[in-house]
């Protein structure tokens, strides 16, 4: 590797790592936002449990990434094998559906219920899409109150499709952020003896530089401001754009004077 190659590699990695840390800083509020939307929509749908499953790998498996309700914490990270259960079907077919009396005969839900101690009785599942691609499934399970539960209605299916639209964009952002997150993890946990060792050391050094910390702090600050409200977002944007304009102007002046 020539010195020039190393330099350009370092430059590239530096920019990737900066993005990675920003992504890490973003991932937590994203899952919180998904959960919040689940709470709001489940209330609207008069549903006891709601969850989001996303694709896991490229073979059609699904994994719960967010859930609310009695057994929410037990669901997280359960994997649904490709095509199994209503969720698996909805994911692979892209067709939403309601099942009034899910349960024992469906081996997948029987298995999940066995693991969680929950009893799935009525279920609505609708696909999450991004740019025409199915990226996951949104599910609502059972009703608020005591069984027997009334089935979800056709109107609620339409309503769920609207919630799915909102949740899809968050899930897509989550997936992108997670991708970066996993990439760093892989880099940092690589075996000492592998070729990654150098990169790992370099990453540690990079993370400890004040410049990198400043960039990360700035990203967190912007995120914090953006979460306060629309007015704050607008103001923040204006301020940042003004700074950019100022910087551009300064650069142009330098260029002209040169």
């Amino acid at each position: 590797m020539t010195a020039h190659d190393k330099f350009s590699l370092e430059e590239k990695l530096r920019s990737v790592i900066e993005t990675v840390d920003v992504a890490n800083a973003l991932i937590e509020p994203l899952t919180r936002s998904i959960e919040n939307l689940l709470y709001i929509s489940a209330g609207q749908m008069n549903s006891e449990e709601a969850s989001v499953l996303i694709r896991d790998g490229s073979h059609g498996d699904l994994r719960f990434i967010s859930a609310i309700g009695k057994v929410a914490h037990q669901l997280i990270d359960i994997t649904v094998p490709a095509g199994k259960g209503v969720a698996g079907f909805v994911f692979s077919s892209g067709q939403p559906m309601v099942i009034a009396d899910a349960g024992e005969e469906d081996s997948f839900y029987a298995e999940v219920d066995k693991q969680t101690g929950y009893s799935t009785q009525t279920l609505l599942a609708t696909p999450l899409r991004h740019k025409g691609e199915v990226i996951g499934v949104l599910e609502y399970v059972n009703r608020i109150g005591d069984p027997p539960y009334e089935s979800f209605t056709a109107d609620e299916m339409d309503e769920a499709a609207v919630f799915a639209e909102a949740i899809s964009s968050l899930v897509n952002a989550y997936e992108s952020a997670k991708l970066f997150h996993d990439f760093t993890d892989q880099m940092l946990t690589a075996d000492e003896t592998t070729d990654f060792a150098d990169v790992r050391k370099w990453l540690d050094e990079l993370r400890s530089t004040s410049e990198h910390k400043e960039i990360l702090d700035l990203a967190i600050l912007v995120r914090e401001l953006a979460s306060r409200g629309e007015e704050e977002r607008k103001m923040c944007r204006k301020v940042l754009e003004s700074i950019l304009e100022f910087a551009d102007g300064k650069a142009n002046t330098n260029y002209l004077s040169y």
Binding site: S93, Q95, P96, M97, V98, I99, A100, D101, A102, E104, E105, D106, S107, S151, F152, T153, A154, M157
Partner: peptide
């Protein structure tokens, strides 16, 4: 599945 019957809703 498993020789059962269900009540389903959907364009499908």
């Amino acid at each position: 599945l498993n020789k059962s019957y269900k009540q389903l809703t959907g364009n499908s």
